[in-house]
């Protein structure tokens, strides 16, 4: 028998590299906190409440403290006077890391 491919559909799935290892992924049910932005509580693969499409237009931002947020959510927080430029998670002074920080 000979098969000719007439049509095909590619399906891709993407995820930000937030530093969660596969081992952590396996425990995702126990610690779902790792997969959502702590500010808006929407998943990292979704977008912040002011954006309409997830992806490069609504990127993530890492702090040197290893915490991750939607960039837009974090900037909005840092722009409020009460933030005192501190991380929303641990209240340490926010220092943006160049990229993901290994935990």
């Amino acid at each position: 028998m000979k098969v000719a491919v007439k049509q095909w559909h590619a399906v891709a799935y993407w995820k930000w590299d937030t530093g969660a290892t596969t081992e952590q992924d396996a425990n995702a049910d126990e610690d779902a906190e790792d997969d959502v932005c702590g500010i808006c509580r929407v998943s990292f693969e979704g977008c912040c409440p002011t954006c309409k499409m997830p992806g490069d237009d609504c990127p993530l931002i890492w702090g040197q403290c290893t915490h991750v947020f939607h960039m837009h959510c974090l900037l909005k927080w840092l722009n409020t006077a009460s933030s005192k430029q501190q991380c929303p998670m641990d209240r340490r002074t926010w220092v943006t890391a160049e990229r993901k920080v290994d935990r």
Partner: peptide, 9 residues
């Protein structure tokens, strides 16, 4: 007040 942070609920 002063210790509010947006990750609190």
């Amino acid at each position: 007040r002063e210790d509010w942070k947006p990750v609190l609920n």
